[in-house]
């Protein structure tokens, strides 16, 4: 039987969840024996080259590109997992929810103390750029999500245990410490 294929992406996140995945240390060698990676920053494959079994996504959706990528993942992955606070609930980026988008953009490009010179009052509006959405959305409001791995970031051990359980079909046993956050 061929190895299960994994894809990963970071949307409106900080890559911290991916860093946490690297924190499995030498177990990454075992992971490579267990699975094959497709589209992911880990192997730098930019587009899906085949159907995958598991998609891991960190970060919520704050713009049209995030949504496009998320929908691609849903199309290409049998199982989709929301990884970390931002994917599950919007996280820090969602702090802007409740503030009108215009106010946020004005603060970022016109009025903020770190703006510097912007005499022409230019806002980034090139057609090539993704469009900012009105709110930051958690993944499950856009597509169906199969599993959630909580944490900011989820610990390396939690990611490891969850992945191994999923690809080996063993029951996931999560020690309390791994999902205790205070």
């Amino acid at each position: 039987m061929s190895k299960p294929i994994i894809a990963t992406a970071s949307l409106a996140g900080c890559f911290g969840c991916h860093m946490s995945l690297l924190d499995i240390d030498d177990r990454i060698l075992k992971l490579i024996e267990l699975v094959e990676f497709n589209k992911s920053p880990i192997d730098d494959i930019k587009t899906f080259t085949k159907q995958c079994d598991i998609g891991l996504i960190e970060g919520g959706c704050c713009n049209t590109e995030n949504i496009e990528v998320l929908k691609e993942f849903r199309k290409h992955c049998k199982i989709l997992i929301s990884v970390g606070e931002c994917a599950i609930m919007g996280g820090l980026p969602a702090m802007r929810n409740g503030i009108p988008v215009k106010e946020c953009l004005d603060e970022a490009y016109l009025d903020g103390p770190t703006v510097g010179e912007n005499k022409e009052k230019i806002m980034p509006n090139d057609e090539e750029l993704p469009i900012i959405t009105d709110k930051v959305y958690p993944l499950h409001e856009i597509v169906k999500v199969d599993y959630y791995l909580p944490g900011c970031p989820p610990s390396a051990d939690l990611l490891w245990e969850a992945l191994v359980a999923l690809v080996t079909g063993k029951e996931l046993e999560i020690p309390y410490e791994l999902i205790k956050f205070d």
């Binding site: 049209t64 009108p100 988008v101 215009k102 953009l105 004005d106 806002m123 980034p124 509006n125 057609e127 469009i131 900012i132 959405t133 009105d134 709110k135 959305y137």
Partner: peptide, 13 residues
């Protein structure tokens, strides 16, 4: 469509 109206108006695109 609804989700992008506000920001498109703000930046003029």
């Amino acid at each position: 469509k609804k989700a992008i109206i506000e920001s498109c108006e703000a930046v003029g695109r």
